[in-house]
Amino acid sequence: MSDIVDVKLAVVGGLPPRTDAPWGPKPGRITPARIGVYAFLVVASLFFLMPFYVMLITSLKPMSEIRLGNLMSLPEVATIQPWIDAWAHACTGVDCNGVQVGLFNSLRILVPSVILSIALGAINGYALSFWRPRGSNLIFAILLLGAFIPYQVYLYPLVRMLSVVGLYNRLPGIVAVHTIFGLPIMTLLFRNYYASLPIDLFKAARVDGGSFWTIFFYLILPMSGPILVVATILQVTGIWNDFLFGLIFAGRENLPMTVLLNNVVNTTTGVREYNVNMAATILTALVPLLVYFVSGRWFVRGIASGAVKG
C-alpha cells in the first residue's frame, strides 16, 4: 500500500508572511528607457505628420498670409477658396479647369486597369502554382526580372507598338500599359498565395474530374477573397499614384490626376499660388490615403505578401 501514498509535502518553515510585498504584479515604474521609446516615437510622428500639416494649413491660408513666411502657423483667416480654385479653376498652361478633370481621368484609367491586371494575375498565379505547364519557370522569371527593370527600357518600342495598333495616346492604350506592368506583381502575389494553399485540395479536385476552369472558378476563386482584397489595394494605390505612364501614354485628353497636378504646380507661367497648389496636392493624395486608412492592416499585408517570398 505504501507505493500509492502521496510523497509527503515538504514542511513549510521560515517563509515570509503571505501578503507581504513583493506580492502580485511589480508596481509599474517608468524607466528612462521607456520614456526614450515614447519620445522617439512622438518625435518621429511629428516628422512624418509635419508635411501633411503644412500642406493642409497652407491650403487654407490666403496668399497674403503665406507671403509672411510663417510656414507652420495656423491661418489667421481660414479660407476654402484655394480648394475651390484647385478643384475647378487652377491652370495648366492655357486650360483652367482645375484638377477635377484629372480625377475623372484617373478613375477612367483606374477601374479597367485594376480589373484586367487582377484577372490576368489570378489566372497566371493559378496556372503557375497548380498546373505548372511547360515554360512556367521561364515566364515567371521574366516577369519577375521585368518588374525590377527600369521602365525606361520598354518605353520607346512600346510607344511605337501602340501607335501601330492605334492605341497610343488613347484610354485603352494606357489601360493596356498598366495591365502589362501590373502583371509581375499581380502574378507574384497570386502565385505565392496559391502556393500556400494545400496542394492536396487541388489533387482531390482533379481526381473528381475538375477541369482547368471549373477548378479555378468553383474551388480556387472562392478561396481567394483575402488576396483579391490585397491585390485591389495594391493596384488601386499603385495605378492612382502613377505618373510616368500617364504622362507618356494617356494622351492630352486622358491625363491622370498626378500629371495634371504636376502641371498645375510646376507651371512656369503666372504667379505661384501656393495655397491652391497645396489644395490640389491634397486632393490628388486623397484617394490613396482613403484606401490606406480604410484598409489598415490589409495595406501592410499587401506590402509584405508582394515582397516576401512565398
Binding site: V54, L261, P288
Partner: peptide, 17 residues
C-alpha cells in the same frame, strides 16, 4: 501613410516646405 501617396505628392510637399 507617406508610402500610400504618390512621389509627385511627396515631391511637391517638400518642395514647398
Amino acid at each position: 501613410y507617406p508610402y500610400a501617396m504618390s512621389f509627385v505628392v511627396t515631391g511637391l510637399a517638400w518642395q514647398w516646405i
